[in-house]
Amino acid sequence: MEQKITLRVDGKERTLTVDTRTTLLDALRERLGVTSAKKGCDHGQCGACTVMLDGRRVTSCLVLAVAGDGAEVVTAAGLADGDDLHPVQKSFVAEDAFQCGYCTPGQIVSAVAMLREAKEGWPSVVSDDLDADRVVLDRAEIAERMSGNLCRCAAYVNIVTAIEKVTRP
């Protein structure tokens, strides 16, 4: 069963007809050629497919494309300003925050969204003061808030450092 949908992907409006079974991840990769979102587990467990959907990070493998009709999608490819990389992207390069790189686009989208959540004062389960106005992103907070992004190369030490450095330039 097919349906026509419109998505705004990395700033460009895209209209396409999809089988209702198509996930947002497959629509991006297989139909629109946006391969910055990666397919790891395809079950919402690894975070490689993380994109921002209407401003919030989500696992795009568990979103049906038809359910995302009308939404704004930002992938890692949409974060840079031309050749000028996003500060989080620059920090991942500077801190060598990857090995094979497969999980990296998901890690970066997740980190950008996470910094926004922290700015809005969202707590985490390791926050000492659940009701604090200001979130202090120490390494434990960053690790907890990034736990939805797995890295099989285990580049975690440098991923946390790369994010930490963005918060304290």
């Binding site: 919402g44 975070g47 993380t50 959907l53 919030r56 990070r57 989500v58 696992t59 568990l62 979103v63 997740s110 969204a113 996470m114 959540e117 707590p123 985490s124 389960v125 659940l130 808030r145 736990s147 939805g148 992004n149």
Partner: peptide, 16 residues
């Protein structure tokens, strides 16, 4: 209740 929610799944899943 906040802590229980924040203990579950990941930020990506909890946004959905």
């Amino acid at each position: 209740l906040s802590q229980a929610l924040l203990s579950g799944a990941s930020y990506q899943l909890r946004n959905l």
